Amino acid sequence: MPDTLNTNDQSDGLADQRAGSGIVVLSASMQLLHMNRQASELAKKINAAEHGGTAAKSAHGVLPAALTELCGEIIKALHVRTEAKDWEQFEVKRVTGDPNQPVLLRGFGLPDRGGIQHARLVVTMEELGRKQNLNTEHARERFQLTNREQAVVEHLAKGWTNKEIANALQITEQTVKEHIKHIMRKTNATTRTGILVQIFNS
């Protein structure tokens, strides 16, 4: 990955043309440097979901909390991963927004030899809702999930708690936890969000 980010008009135009992907570039001090049209639209949707469905409550142009938290994780990682090559295989992911049409955030750091204050954060945003049903079926085959595990994943994608999943499937919360442990092992994930990232990427 290059040390510097080319933000001339041509690359901005290409970024805008990427079907469905929002692109946000920030400085390490969280100053917004670039946000394409798609990212702006997705940020509005995430803000609406974070504020109970009413976008009016969230100030215009304010970055969603999920996005700023993700950037906080990238900044922490930039203190450790100080070379561009350290970021070639590393990214911070989060699924957020409306559970019926979630948004996958993928964050990368672009270190700078001049120090962290010159580093850049790049976040891509992609809507996942359209392929959600297709993916749980595909993921079931890919990760060898049982029918019950697939049902748990589908409820996780809606943002449900263990208790809500247990009630829906008429099993105990402990059983839900066991299913989630098995799913984590099969998908090589360490968190509930990690499971969703794997499923949506499958």
Rank of each mutant, 00 (worst) to 15 (best):
A39N: 14
S202D: 04
R140I: 10
N167Q: 14
I183Y: 14
A168V: 01
R37G: 09
H179Y: 10
N162F: 04
H51S: 06
L5I: 09
Q38S: 05
V197R: 07
R94G: 07
T146A: 08
Q17F: 05
N6V: 13
K93W: 12
L33Y: 02
H34R: 05
T191L: 01
V80A: 12
N36E: 03
N133F: 12
R185Y: 00
D112M: 01
A56L: 05
N100S: 15
A39C: 11
K177F: 10
A19T: 11
G107K: 09
D12S: 15
F143V: 07
H34P: 11
N167S: 05
Q198E: 14
Q170G: 08
R140T: 12
V122Y: 06
Q89W: 07
A189I: 09
K163A: 00
I165E: 04
R113G: 14
Q89V: 11
M125R: 04
D3I: 08
K158C: 08
F200K: 07
L14N: 01
R120S: 06
T4I: 00
N188Y: 14
E126D: 14
F143P: 07
E126A: 13
F200W: 08
A189H: 05
A43M: 08
A49E: 00
G114I: 04
P64I: 06
A151T: 07
E154K: 05
